[in-house]
Amino acid sequence: MNLLNIIEEINIADPEFQDRISPRRAVIKNITSFGSKVAVAALPMAFSTLFKKAYGQTAPLTVSDVLNYALKLEYLEAAFYNAGVASALSFSTAEKAALVTIQTHENAHVNFLKGVLGINAVAQTSQGMNGTYDFTGGFNTTTNIVTGTGPFSTVLTDIDTYFAVAQVFEDTGVRAYKGQARNLLGNHTVSTAALNIHSVEARHASAIRQIRRARGGAGATTKPWITGANDTGIAAVNGNYAGEDNVVQGPVTITNLPGVSGNVSVNAATEAFTEPLTMTQVVALVNIFGVR
């Protein structure tokens, strides 16, 4: 049994396979060759123009809309970790190191997306109150004022609260990126970048959840993956986990499938697939922190 042979067989069985990796449709080809000529970090170009051509009128959202949405989320996350690392919270050495790692990635994501969007990038100062967020979740979306009196009022004074909010941000970020996958369908460069960032956010989520498990207390039973609907024990974030208890994937009901002993359990079925959130859902969830 040789996996390499199977892969060869896929290529033989599917004549389109090569075309799809090196698309012959002119506009797509332009995009892929464009991507190959320019370093990832140096893409301050009008990407959206190129990609609109590929999609014509069928695109539900322009790629720049999707990227700006991602940028707003990354602004929030970067600011959150910048604030946490700079705070007086007495993290352990290991916790601090993990936070610095994640902080570095989130700031890199910001810079990457800003670079890709160029002049189309939304400004950080357009977010929150002149760029300042309300990490307590108390942002007044009518007056655009930071109240500091949201449900997580101890976010920057209590470590467990800080990590709980971090977990919610990361889990939501993963779901938010996932929800945009279909809007980037067939877009080699951007979809690959989005998938890559998406998987890094999932690593962060896993790491934060492992920290909460290790800290014990309310987070002691936290697993690196999401079990059922809202396994955080925080009712205020039910919306962030809405739909995570889904056990039907495409045409398949996972809990009807054979597991190791008996059928796949409900827990395993929900943990094994992370569900997407729509842009509308996500915007409604993060505007209490000041994302606009």
Binding site: F17, A181, H198, A202, A205, S206, A272, F273, T274
Partner: peptide
């Protein structure tokens, strides 16, 4: 999964791949 994502034509399958890859990433981080 990340590398194959852009090859997928059907939005439903792409979303399904996305649902799985993040779980694999969580495993990897653990």
């Amino acid at each position: 999964y990340n590398g194959a994502g852009y090859l997928i034509k059907d939005a439903t399958y792409l979303t399904l791949a996305g649902k799985i890859v993040s779980v694999e990433a969580r495993h990897s981080a653990y």
